[in-house]
């Protein structure tokens, strides 16, 4: 199979107006991916599916990823690394964004940008030619109001439920999806719980066993110990 660089070059030759970037994967797996611009994504996807040398007829996996704005000022790695359990502000109301410090991270996949977007990642394989994966990524403009991406469900039906799931949990709106509803949460639900700044409802009224974060959150509900002291 062609390398991602070759695919990129062919795509650029075929779609001169499109923007196709190679996103390198610094990890051991070294599965590099192609970042497409939203405007041409549908055409490029069709091309990838039908091109005789690629024939990526099988879209295996569609993933949403949240990349909140990167705090460039964070320098001390100790605080930047997310702790074992994600800390959230216990005073924050459900649905309000957590303080930015909770989002500290040393993530490095898109090393050269500052984040603040949502991403959809598609893993494509070819069942006919038995090769793959070719990984394509789409990115939204930001995380609040420019969150529309073209749906690839018309190209690969396999993306149907998975795009609905991403719409539900991340809030990416897939334009052109035939049936874009919440998949997992109920329809009245308003948050996008897989985002990093989502604050879950505080309903750990009582937690008798120490259980990390749950324990901490439950403490707020414990009765005061003052009466017991005397």
């Amino acid at each position: 199979m062609e390398t991602p660089e070759q695919i990129r070059d062919r795509l650029l030759a075929r779609f001169p107006a499109a923007k196709v970037e190679l996103v390198t994967n610094p990890g051991t797996a070294a599965e590099h991916s192609l970042l497409l611009d939203a405007a041409h994504a549908r055409d490029i996807a069709l091309f990838l599916r039908d091109d005789p040398a690629l024939r990526l007829d099988y879209c295996s996996n569609v993933t949403g990823v949240d990349w909140p704005e990167k705090k460039t000022a964070v320098s001390a790695p100790k605080t930047a690394v997310p702790t074992l359990v994600e800390r959230v502000d216990p005073n924050a109301l459900p649905g309000t964004p957590a303080p930015a410090s909770a989002l500290g991270s040393t993530r490095s996949t898109p090393a050269n940008d500052s984040g603040n977007y949502l991403e959809a990642v598609y893993h494509l394989y070819s069942m006919a030619l038995k090769h793959g994966p070719v990984i394509i990524r789409l990115r939204t403009g930001n995380r609040t109001d420019r969150v529309t991406l073209p749906s690839l469900t018309p190209v690969w039906r396999a993306a149907d439920f998975q795009e609905r799931e991403i719409f539900d949990l991340y809030g990416i709106v897939f334009a052109g999806h035939p049936d874009l509803r919440r998949l997992l949460m109920w329809d009245e639900f308003q948050d996008h719980p897989m985002r990093r700044d989502y604050v879950a409802p505080d309903d750990f009224e009582w937690e008798p066993t120490p259980h990390g974060d749950v324990h901490e959150r439950a403490k707020g509900h414990y009765p005061t110990t003052e009466g017991l002291k005397g």
């Binding site: 459900p94 649905g95 109920w186 329809d187 009245e188 639900f189 308003q190 948050d191 409802p201 309903d203 009224e205 009582w206 008798p208 509900h221 414990y222 009765p223 110990t225 017991l228 002291k229």
Partner: peptide, 25 residues
């Protein structure tokens, strides 16, 4: 009921009250 963020109410107050923890001061 299904609420915007959680179930409404999140528990049945006639049935469930957080048990008091026996704790030493």
């Amino acid at each position: 009921d299904f609420g915007a963020h959680d179930l409404q109410p999140p528990s049945n107050p006639n049935l469930f009250t957080a048990p008091v923890l026996p704790r030493k001061a």
